[in-house]
């Protein structure tokens, strides 16, 4: 019903058309809703009655006079004003800075404070899950296994963690075929199929294992998990209101970015292999031969694409050979 609001000393009162007081209360006990755009203000009295007014400016003037002008600060920021251009720039800049610097820093902190038991538990359970589902017992003969283990021990001993940090497991790959992979606690898994693919070139397998040791030493899997979580959190944060379609696009974009991260991790592990093999006095180009083998036997000539987890095989091989040449050229 039509009525008016008035100030009476310490009190705020509402009067009807006839002038009778309908409601009132001490200013401190009256709740005045913060201003949002041109939405009518609600003034709620202690007895639950409500006074609504579209005259936002009058309420703001009143609050300022009472020294409560600060309550409207958010609204003043939100007003349509050239200042908003600066806000847009600041939001974009801050978002980019967080992605570029804060996120990697947070990932490093998270990796540093993760107790070693976490990767261990993760690895044990992953291996158990893999053993139950795809992997089978290795059918390699002892002699071949012995040669690989010998090479593996030699390079593991020279890695930062020492030989004790790594264990090598032989498995039959089954559905995953020729492959070698590392779990974050230093458990390495090598499939029979890969050993067969390598033929008699044990050195090549050692080179591949050095690559996997690189993944463990550089803590790639932990980093990837934290990074994915961080990117998801960032999208959730900023994407408070961008529409569900645009949010999907952001998530997909985040996926593409994480692939680029995965490719650079592969390249870093390749370099690690070269360095470790050189240090052990073994053939640093062994892993390049492995890529050559993949190219010819599996006919993989793919180039680096933004949709893959690994860099293109020919490109990787070239990068490795370049690095070997560079390292060999350096005076020691």
């Amino acid at each position: 019903m039509p009525s008016s609001l008035a100030e009476a000393g310490e009190r705020l009162t509402v009067h009807g058309d006839a002038g009778a007081e309908l409601s009132g209360g001490k200013l401190s006990a009256v709740e005045i809703s913060p201003r949002v755009g041109a939405v009518p203000r609600r003034i709620t009295f202690p007895d639950g009655s409500l006074f609504e007014t579209g005259d936002n400016d009058a309420i703001d003037r009143f609050l300022t006079r009472k020294g409560r002008g600060r309550e409207g600060i958010i609204h003043r920021m939100e007003r349509f004003h050239p200042r908003l251009i600066a806000f847009v720039a600041a939001a974009i800049l801050l978002g980019a800075l967080i992605y570029r610097f804060a996120l990697p820093a947070l990932v490093e902190v998270a990796v540093a404070v993760t107790p070693p038991v976490v990767p261990r538990v993760m690895s044990v359970s992953t291996l158990e899950a893999l053993d139950r589902t795809v992997l089978g017992d290795s059918e390699l003969d002892e002699a071949r296994r012995g040669r690989i283990i010998e090479g593996f021990r030699a390079i593991a001993a020279l890695s930062a963690g020492g030989e004790g940090d790594y264990t090598l497991n032989f498995r039959k790959g089954g559905a995953i075929g020729p492959n070698a992979f590392a779990l974050p606690d230093g458990t390495l898994i090598l499939t029979d199929e890969l050993v067969e693919l390598a033929g008699n070139d044990t050195e090549m397998i050692v080179g591949v294992l050095a690559h996997e040791i690189g993944h463990v030493e550089l803590k790639h899997s932990l980093r990837q998990i934290y990074r994915a979580a961080g990117v998801a959190a960032l999208i959730m944060l900023i994407a408070g209101d961008i529409g569900s379609g645009a949010e999907d696009v952001l998530v997909q974009g985040g996926g593409l970015l994480s692939l680029s991260y995965s490719r650079s991790a592969e390249a870093a592990a390749d370099r690690h292999s070269v360095e470790l093999m050189l240090k052990a006095g073994r053939d640093p180009t062994a892993i390049a031969r492995f890529f050559q083998l993949i190219e010819t036997k599996l006919e993989d000539h793919s180039e680096t694409s933004i949709f893959s987890t690994h860099p293109g095989t020919p490109e990787r091989r070239k990068a490795i050979l370049d690095l070997v040449a560079e390292l060999r050229a350096q005076p020691r």
Binding site: S33, G37, E78, F80, V88, A91, G95, I238, D241
Partner: peptide, 30 residues
Amino acid sequence: EYFGIWIVNILLTIVTLGIYSAWAKVRRNR
């Protein structure tokens, strides 16, 4: 009018590392 509310919501959410997002939702819905 909504543009101002929207961009301030985003900016304050980033600055407060996400904590403001709850208040941002209130302002948006109001």
